[in-house]
Computed example of a mutant assay.
Amino acid sequence: MNASPSQPHPAEWPETQELLATEERGLPAGRHDFHKEHLMARIHDDLRTNTTPGTPSAPAPARQRNPFLRRTILLPAAACAVAGAAVAGFALTGGGDGGDGKTPLATGPALTTHIGTADAKGASQLLNRISLAAADTSGPTVRDGQYIYVASKVASTFPKTVDDKTTIVSQELHPRQVWQSPDGKDGWLIERGETGDKGITLASSVPMSAAYNTLAKLPTDPDALLKKIYQDVDKNRDKEVPRDQAAFVAIGDLLSESYPPAELVPTLYKVAAKIPGVVAVDDAVDATGRHGVAVARLNEQDGQREEWIFDKKTLALLGERTVQVKAVPGAGDDALKPGTIASTSAITQRAVVDGIKQTPSGSQAG
Rank of each mutant, 00 (worst) to 15 (best):
M1Y: 10
S6G: 15
A11Y: 08
W13F: 04
P14T: 01
P14H: 02
E24S: 15
L27Y: 13
G30K: 07
D33N: 12
H38S: 04
L39G: 03
R42I: 07
I43G: 01
L47K: 05
L47H: 13
A60L: 02
A77P: 08
A78F: 02
C80T: 09
C80S: 12
G94P: 12
G95S: 11
G98M: 12
L105W: 01
G116S: 03
T117P: 02
S131V: 06
Q146F: 10
Y149S: 04
V150C: 01
S152H: 08
V154W: 06
V154C: 09
A155E: 05
S156G: 06
P159I: 01
K160F: 05
T167S: 14
V169E: 12
E172F: 15
Q177V: 08
Q177F: 13
W179C: 04
D183K: 10
G184S: 07
E194V: 11
K198F: 14
Y212G: 10
L215H: 11
K228Y: 09
Q231A: 13
V233F: 03
K235P: 09
I251F: 02
G252L: 08
G252W: 00
T267C: 07
A272P: 00
V278R: 03
A280I: 00
D283C: 04
D283S: 09
D286K: 08
T288E: 11
V293L: 05
R297A: 07
L298C: 08
Q301N: 15
R305Q: 07
E306S: 14
E306I: 05
F310G: 04
L315Y: 11
L318V: 00
V323Q: 06
K326W: 03
V328T: 05
V328M: 10
K337A: 00
A351P: 08
P360H: 11
A365H: 05
